[in-house]
Design a protein around this nucleic acid. Structure first.
Lengths: 341, 341
DNA sequence: AAATAAATTGCAAACGTTTGCACAAACGTT
DNA sequence: AACGTTTGTGCAAACGTTTGCAATTTATTT
């Protein structure tokens, strides 16, 4: 059970009567080494099942080929889809991935960032904890290693950011409702300064503006925690109004599903009386009935793209700051909750 | 942007006019060092923002304090809940976690296991790919480092295994249906030699036996891929029978939801005509209507437990093989799909 | 044949940490 | 005063790899 030691360069070199350095260079395909020697070395290496000790290597060259990932909540479906993309792309490019969860705790988030750099990761992919306000510490670390933000990002951090076209996606969703003939469109969004929520809200406003529909404050509802339960609760409020809305745009599938449940309870016809649109295309959106119209966000593409940019920065470092924002296109998936005949 | 170097022991030692080894020992709270020195060292270390180079350490002591995790599919909700538990418990105990996805591919699974040991992880937590049959390679690696299996396990691999009480959980679920007065209980399960499926099937059989209910082959349906779509398809078959079942036990929430969808379509009353029970307590089970009765598996507890056993094996290695199986208790959550008044 | 260039290979240092051992000082015991 | 003991500290080796430079061999040129 005790950890058996791996074959080392030294053992190979002894076996072949070569020096350690020659063996090392042969395996790394260094041009100074003759073809002949290279083949002999490679053959024996394979035979003796040689694998380089990554710690010695990382230790020596301060390159670990490890990427750190920090996300608020790993069991959120959208997040785990992104992680899937990250894992796949990283593996493809010969990087390994360490994952941590911040639990939406800003302090913990910085702590993890520190541990990771201390650990020697080559770069970090990060989705910010809700209400990340103090970016000081993050900026400090950004001076030392490249960071790429995705999904929950912040304009206060000058680095590459990979997001979906939140504003446009929301615009499209609301435009869809308007084209259906809806005029009193309510929105259920987040209170706090959440990047995603604000962008989506902006899209909502732009759509109303474009079609000359007045913005009614009463139809703009916010909640701290954009959950199913709160979606239900806010919808109840909407239903108690003298003039009910004729559509609800919830910036989250869960909240939208909560809305549907509430509407169901009060026997409101969906979508005839009130149409509902969500955001995320989570599995649930097809399970609820009526099936939910929603915005599909290609999580794995976000993950892959983020990895690609991060590795690029790692492998060809420049002294300029990278501040580009990459937008991944989403698409509106129309289902029964907004399908009028 | 270039990787700035961290403070090293050498720098600390120079500053304090002490030897490197004294500083090292002071920071590791070695009893040989005087309290006075320890405090001076610690103070300066903090001030100079010293962090040990984990690579040098891991390299030296061949202990990395990294755990490897291999799962079939990270974006499966139950899996990511387990991961959450793993991450939390590991962090608590000062271990870091590397996660890989096997995509249910046996070859890839072994490959990852190899890369991880090569990488120097102290131990591996693994949930097996479906249809893992060739355990040769895994056994080889088990000789070198401790492995703990969870969720998808195999009796062919002599190591600690953390599972839920699959058989009993299924038994309870079916017993619940019987107590409801159901007599023709169908089961939707997996075809291939899946550990979970077989255990659950065994529980199903035991429940029928206990109550003297004949086992009818026609009511035992299997599918390769236990998905929502296949749940729906198999339910359609059940509905086409001359004598329909009066209950369906699907060994997966998704399949159960497929069943509900099919029943819905044919306007079969749930649970009066046919009751439905699933397995997993995924979020969806509360979103479908009627809400699904299902078995709650405490994912994070599984994760935490697995980590605990693994670390124990790492930190106090014995030469005996560890083959205990730890069962985590589940509970049946009764909802509308089987709630009769 | 001598001189130079090119192709291979080896030596040795370096990376930052831990740890067995040796050493020195201070103390207590005969 | 001589001897052990205890306490605190430093020396130096080791972990496995990479890499600048030197050394050797071989090929090419004059």
């Amino acid at each position: 059970m005790s950890k058996k030691r791996n074959t080392t360069l030294k053992e190979l070199s002894k076996e072949l009567s070569l020096s350690i350095s020659t063996v090392s260079r042969a395996l790394n395909d260094h041009p100074d080494i003759s073809q002949d020697t290279k083949e002999r070395v490679r053959k024996l290496a394979k035979q003796m099942n040689y694998v380089p000790n990554l710690f010695a290597r990382g230790f020596r060259s301060r390159e670990t080929h490890i990427l750190g990932v920090i996300v608020p909540n790993i069991s959120h479906l959208f997040t785990s889809t992104i992680l899937k993309g990250i894992l796949e792309e990283a593996e493809l490019r010969g990087y390994r991935v360490i994952i941590s969860e911040s639990n939406n705790n800003e302090v913990k988030q910085v702590e993890m960032l520190n541990t990771m750099t201390q650990f020697g990761v080559d770069g970090v992919l990060m989705s910010l904890a809700r209400k990340t306000t103090n970016v000081e510490e993050i900026l400090k670390i950004l001076n030392r290693i490249p960071i790429v933000l995705f999904d929950k990002v912040s304009s206060k951090i000058p680095c590459t950011q990979v997001v979906i076209n939140e504003e446009e996606a929301a615009f499209n969703a609301v435009e869809h409702l308007i084209e259906l003939g809806k005029q009193r469109i309510a929105i259920i969004k987040e209170t706090e300064n959440s990047y995603n929520s604000e962008k989506r809200f902006a899209g909502y406003l732009r759509a109303l503006n474009k079609y000359g529909i007045p913005v009614r404050d009463k139809l703009i509802l916010s909640t701290e925690d954009i959950s199913l339960g709160n979606g239900r609760r806010l919808t109840n409020i909407l239903l108690s109004m003298k003039k009910r809305p004729d559509a609800i745009f919830a910036i989250t599938d869960n909240a939208a599903i909560g809305a549907i449940k509430a509407l169901h309870k009060f026997k409101v016809k969906i979508p005839e009386e009130i149409a509902v649109v969500g955001f995320s295309n989570s599995i649930n959106s097809t399970i609820v009935s009526p099936a939910l119209t929603t915005v599909d966000q290609p999580g794995d593409k976000i993950g892959r793209t983020a990895v690609r940019f991060l590795i690029e920065e790692i492998e060809s470092p420049t002294n300029e700051v990278n501040t580009k924002t990459v937008e991944i296109k989403t698409s509106l998936i129309v289902r029964d909750s907004s399908l009028m005949v």
